[in-house]
Every structure is written in C-alpha cells, then in structure tokens.
Amino acid sequence: MPSAPRPAPPPQTAPAPTSGVRSVISYLLFIHFFFLLVGIKASTNTPSALDQDLSNKVPGLHAYLQLLGMDLSYMVDLTGYDPESHNQFSEEGQFVPEDTDYVVEADIPQADGSMRTIVWPTDEYARASIGRTRWQRLVSQAVILSEIDDENAAKLAHVIARRIMAETGCGQASKQKAMNVRFRRRLLQNLIPRPEVTWDQLAEEYARDPRDPAYLQTSLELVAYLTANDEFESTSKKAASNTAAPAGSPKSRPRPRPTGTPTGTPTGTGASS
C-alpha cells in the first residue's frame, strides 16, 4: 500500500533585517519617494515655484527619475477634448492629448503617373494594438510640436517622410516625382447636447460616418522627393486645410430618435455641426 505523501514542512521565515539594514532601506525609501513626488508635481501642467525649484536644484533628481522611467505626472486623463480649443497646448509641449486619432497620409506617385494614397497606421494594425498607438503617438508629436513652432517638428516630419519613401519604394519607382505627406488629426463628432443644437441635429450628426475624411484636420504638410544625387529632401508647405467639417450628412441613412434628456453643459459649437 502506497504510503501517504508527507506534508511539506512549514516555511521558515527568512531572517529579519537588522536595525542597520532597516535604517539604510528607510533612508533609500525616503529618497525614492521624495524624488518621485517632486518629479510628479513638477511634471504637472501647473507646477508650483517650489516644485520647479526642487526639481531643478536637487542633484540627481532628473537623472534618477529619467533612468527609472518615472519622470512623468501619471495624470492620465484619457480625454480633455474641447472642440473649440483642441489645438491649444502648453508652450513646453508637455500636454499630449490621448483623445484624438492622428494619421499620416502620403500621396505616392506611381510609375504610370497616377497617385496612390496610403494612410498610416494602416488597417493591418489591430484596433487596440500597441503598434497602432505608437503610430498615433509619433504623428501626434510631430503635429503638436509643429503647432508650438518647435523646430523638432520639421525634423520628425522629415524622417517619417523619408521612411515612408524608403518603405514604399516611391523614390525609385518615379524619381524626381514629389510625394505629398500630410499629418492629420481626426476631430470628433460632437454628440454632446447643448442649447443651440436640437435633438434632430444631433441625430443627423450621429448618422454621419465618424471616419468621414471631412473630420480630418491637416496640421502639417510637406513635399518629399529625391534629388538628382539620390538624396532625400523635404520641404514644408502651408497646410491645405486647417479646419475640418463634413460637407453634409448622408440623407439615406436611418436617423435615430433621441429619447434622453439633455443634461450636458455646453462645451462649444462643435467642429462639424
């Protein structure tokens, strides 16, 4: 008869730290949380003078937090969307909104003289994939930096266009032909009830396709080409359109009848009504 398995012996507690070890760890904990809290406070949109002074003058603070990836405010607000001021950002460019989609479009000249437009992130990325989010972040950085006239916007846009040209083979296929690249932000459908808009108008807005290209706002546009020496060049040009609004609503679609009661506080006239 098989013998019953012996129960495992109870776990022995690891030795407790000595008083000296506890003191050292406590000191390190104090330093860590002091740095962390100062870093967090200084990274907010409205840091106090004390936060900024501490952040700038405490030796090693920046290096410590940046190395650990903790030099941020953790103020994940997901959205702060305001249809009237969506393109106003802090001068430092710290505020990167997570609440709109960004795309980069390229008109690529084909060998037969026609143009083919490709949009990134492409549909190959799953909707919630981190690869798609990275594209959004990259394009949003170029757009936002351009809106605060940061010189790095042009650099970023330049290297993105260069990569697009390299991946699409545009330069080789049609040398000397320019490729147009547009960095665009997708404005949101304004379905928020507000005094100046009736429920019928909201229903009409709802019936529109939120992916309608008319919702796209071009923020940065450049022309990219290969020179005679096969060197990549790009020049910025004035954005073709700085506002976006659907031209009209498709009348053929069913219009849902709103049944709720408006409760939202007015937030503006909306980008597309």
Binding site: G80, D82, D99, R127, R186, G264, T265
Partner: peptide, 22 residues
C-alpha cells in the same frame, strides 16, 4: 481629471471617448 479638465467635471468625458472612432 479633476484639475482644470472640464469634461470630466461636466460629465461629458465618456461621451467624447465614445466618439473617437479609431
């Protein structure tokens, strides 16, 4: 969300989040 972010206080934030098609 609470510091100067109007859409979270007036209750519209989730409405805007639903409107983002991508």
């Amino acid at each position: 969300k609470s510091h100067g972010n109007f859409v979270w206080w007036n209750g519209n934030a989730v409405g805007w989040l639903t409107a983002r098609p991508g």
